[in-house]
């Protein structure tokens, strides 16, 4: 009896050793260990769902164990600080959104734009300025809102989700371009803004199509203007900022970054895996269900260039609004 127990133990240990050595054998090839993917917002939110949807295919593409976890704190400050402390080996990823760029621009984190490399962007959800059409609504179109704002400065109230956020920046930039001053009313999310617009508590709300689509189809809300260049296929009748002569392009975007200094071949491998995973039906369906177009997907150098273009704008706006840490 004792002898057989001994044999079992030896066998188990040998198997363990063999498994270990195969793991070691693959060490030179990335990825050879678990990848930790951090998001700054809580489970069930937009960034969480985006990350988990891409990861479904990524795990197969990279043949790696990818663990997504939340590292909240200071609108991504803690997550970015953590990234700066990890080695540049491609095993730590961060989801990266407008809020995180704002955190960087405000100087709330040790990381700056040049400290991260863009892997891919997966979401590009345009910001729309939405008015109520319930019982006729107060305004017919964006011109009427702007006329009111010119007539009584600071009396037109715009609902935004949190201050110093993409909503706030979008409404501020649009107001600046149109030469009017809005009063910003911060809410905790799109749902609350919709309620406030429907209840005529505020004049206009900054929302993404995915948030107000249901109410739009029911005829209670409509976008007065889209802060994009070309008209969206879901909203053929809604003018864009560019058409009306305002040079403002604002969208809620989500993507992934890693630490700068990661070996180029690893960066390219991850980018390629993202490109393939976002081609897949699962990801395409996700985009469609959330009213986003395939142009959301932007991989590699393009996404890096996009971030480079956004960086000075955000730094400027954050300074204008007084949010930069002195």
């Amino acid at each position: 009896m004792k002898k057989s127990l001994f044999r079992v133990l030896v066998a188990v240990m040998a198997m363990g050793f063999l498994w270990q050595s195969t793991a070691f054998a693959a060490d030179d090839e990335y990825p050879s260990k678990q990848i930790n993917w951090y998001i700054h917002s809580s489970a069930g939110g937009g960034t969480d769902i985006f990350s988990r949807t891409v990861a479904l295919r990524l795990r197969r593409e990279l043949k790696a164990n990818i663990v997504i976890s939340t590292m909240s704190g200071g609108s991504g400050a803690r997550m970015l600080n953590n990234l700066m402390e990890q080695p540049a080996d491609g095993y730590t990823w961060n989801s990266f959104t407008n809020s995180n760029l704002a955190t960087m621009a405000r100087g709330n984190t040790t990381a700056s734009r040049e400290d991260v490399i863009g892997i891919a962007r997966g979401c590009y959800d345009p910001q729309a300025l939405v008015i109520s059409t319930k019982d006729g609504g107060t305004y017919k179109n964006i011109e009427e809102v702007l006329a009111k704002a010119k007539e009584s400065p600071g009396k037109v109230k715009i609902g935004v989700a949190h201050m110093a956020s993409i909503d706030h920046v979008a409404a501020y930039e649009f107001g600046k371009a149109a030469g009017v001053e809005f009063e910003f009313v911060p809410f905790d999310g799109g749902g609350e803004i919709i309620v406030a617009v429907l209840g005529n508590v505020i004049d206009m709300g900054v929302l993404n199509p995915s948030e107000f689509m249901g109410q739009y189809e029911a005829g209670n809300l409509k976008p007065a203007i889209m802060l994009v260049a070309d008209r969206l296929k879901d909203f053929p009748d809604t003018p864009t900022a560019k058409e009306l002569g305002y040079d403002v392009e604002m969208a809620t975007w989500r993507g992934v970054v890693i630490k700068a200094g990661t070996p180029p071949e690893i960066v390219e491998k991850i980018r390629a895996a993202f490109a393939k995973s976002m081609e897949h039906k699962i990801y395409r369906n996700y985009l469609e269900d959330n009213s986003m177009g395939p142009e959301s997907i932007m991989v590699g150098a393009d996404w890096d260039a996009f971030l480079d273009a956004k960086w000075p704008i955000w730094k400027q706006v954050m300074a204008d609004l007084g949010y930069v840490k002195k």
Binding site: I49, S210, M213, G214, Q215, E217, A218, N220, N285, Y286, D289, N290
Partner: peptide, 10 residues
Amino acid sequence: LVHGMRPGPL
């Protein structure tokens, strides 16, 4: 939304 249903009045 993931399952293709858009909550709302409709």
